[in-house]
Design a protein around this nucleic acid. Sequence first.
DNA 1: GGGCTTCTTGAATCGTCAC
DNA 2: AGTGACGATTCAAGAAGCC
Lengths: 377, 377
Amino acid sequence: MSAVRLVDDLSAVSAKAEWLDTILKGDCIAALERLPEKSVDVIFADPPYNLQLEGDLHRPDQSKVDAVDDAWDQFESFEVYDAFTRAWLLAARRVLKPNGTIWVIGSYHNIFRVGAKLQDLGFWILNDVIWRKTNPMPNFRGRRFQNAHETLIWASRDQSAKGYTFNYDAMKAANDDLQMRTDWLFPICTGGERLKDENGDKVHPTQKPEALLARILMASSKPGDVVLDPFFGSGTTGAVAKRLGRHFVGIEREQSYIDAATARIAAVEPLGAGETAVMGGKRAEPRVAFGSLVEAGLIAPGAELSDARRRWTAQVRADGTLAIGRDAGSIHRLGAMVQGLEACNGWTFWHVEREGRLEPIDALRRVIRDQMAGVGA
Amino acid sequence: MSAVRLVDDLSAVSAKAEWLDTILKGDCIAALERLPEKSVDVIFADPPYNLQLEGDLHRPDQSKVDAVDDAWDQFESFEVYDAFTRAWLLAARRVLKPNGTIWVIGSYHNIFRVGAKLQDLGFWILNDVIWRKTNPMPNFRGRRFQNAHETLIWASRDQSAKGYTFNYDAMKAANDDLQMRTDWLFPICTGGERLKDENGDKVHPTQKPEALLARILMASSKPGDVVLDPFFGSGTTGAVAKRLGRHFVGIEREQSYIDAATARIAAVEPLGAGETAVMGGKRAEPRVAFGSLVEAGLIAPGAELSDARRRWTAQVRADGTLAIGRDAGSIHRLGAMVQGLEACNGWTFWHVEREGRLEPIDALRRVIRDQMAGVGA
DNA sequence: GGGCTTCTTGAATCGTCAC
DNA sequence: AGTGACGATTCAAGAAGCC
């Protein structure tokens, strides 16, 4: 590293410090353009829904439903909404790191337009996720199904971006050891979590539950990552990011929302590093070559390996390869060969006999890894 | 009615007779253009998803996943897919009655484009509905969330069309007297319902479950209505429409699918008029429940329920209601009615005969609940 | 037959690293 | 940038096989 680059880095860090963990006031697109490119790991966006409400809606008891009729949710036409969507998605894409991902939440009023535009701009959809509401608002007129969900789209920056963060093992563990599905069940934001002003009115009409953001950030970010929310509103994204040990950047136009979010986030107590750590699986473990087991004396050259049912056996050679008759190769290649398959995980396929029982050689790899961890500690 | 109008009507009926309850062979758009305008009550469309698969996918046991790689699912680009979508939606809109509605099913690969195009063409989205799968294919590589749902869009022809059919009370009654929500739980189509050819291979790669179509048609059509499916495939729409006393029209290009669908539909026994009747609109009338058991086939429409001492019996109907003579209602209400009580838990009151013994229907509900356990949350 | 295990399969945009 | 080696990864049902 040269001194010049070091200065560059320092200036970048310094520039970062100005906007990390802050709320930028102003228009979403203009603010996005002020941020450095490729600087954000995860974007969560809850854009205006373009609700096309005609007149007021009344409950059966004639009470008026407090509809989302704020000025920021009014668009003249689909064309105008599409142009707005395209503009902010483009600006968001510029600030996203190459391996960053974006989440957008919406309802049937806008989500189809957002999804199509995401695809048009080159984003690559990874999943659509359904937030099933335990307590949705009823359909008061009885003319449709009760609208009981919202839709989230999760997308990477490009089709070719394979290095995005997905904490698969953590998600699976949190779901009783079953893969996390695309249908999530959460209550809507009510009670003590719902921000109210001094009159007892809700601060923001569409405040999202923290549990939803927590799952999103636990699934697709790492501690220390930068999380951007271009429609910050009451700051749920910032509050959850801070609590989970992620940095946040919020963009918001309305001062009343900024005030509420600022106070809210200030009151958040971050969890400790141990609590926010992401559970990693085998993928996160350091690589160990089979040969190093032989070198370490955990398996002697000449030892015999077999599969779990003792259908095939192979001999360990001093160079860390296996041999069956005249054939030789890696533990993986020979495992594939004897089974007639394209591929094979030799670590779990091959076993060694210890005290009369067959044990996968993966258990020996564990020994090596524990030794490595012990040295590092 | 004048004689002229009567003749016109007759000729219309005569013309109808040629295509009602038939499968039209040929290109979807060309066939749609041969149908009279404003002649269809409900359209159910399962268009190609444009899956964009690249390499092979293997399960952890190295077996190869049988991908949907048929020629009909291949499109050169989003632009080509959009043009295709626009063309068939326009042709479908012409044949739809002014108060008709359209259902389209898709996945995240295509549904956003379909939804946006629906809006562009003037359709008015009533709901998006989520089909949650009890048994979806896992994500074998652990790189994303398990894709556990598909999305349906339900739309009317115009924003101004307020007279569309929605059997609100029947849906509510079938859902334990709660409004039917937009998240529906069904298994994918397997077992005896899945059509196989003489080699035991599946006839169609994406056959939809009949329970899904049953709910759609029970919700949005009346007996005698005309139901059109422009991507008929193996004919699930036709089979369910016939069983429920609706007319169907199918459009399909491939002869093998037509042959399978023809035989399948010929074997369907229509239910009696009493079983397919939808409950009247009066909200004060007794209501019913347990529709999901019926949709799931755990209890067949027409089956007889009785109380533990066989003092009373009632008949199950396709919309999830019970009938005793001229009376109809939820399991709770009819249980109360026959006993002369204010309230009654129909789940424990009503029994079904299995292997000569009476078993409370609550035991069947447990089956459904077991399906739901472990899902979501 | 019954209970148990094993096998099969489903609309799927399903790697990463070193050389 | 292209190539090849490493080695990580699955849930629910129904059907079939086995004692």
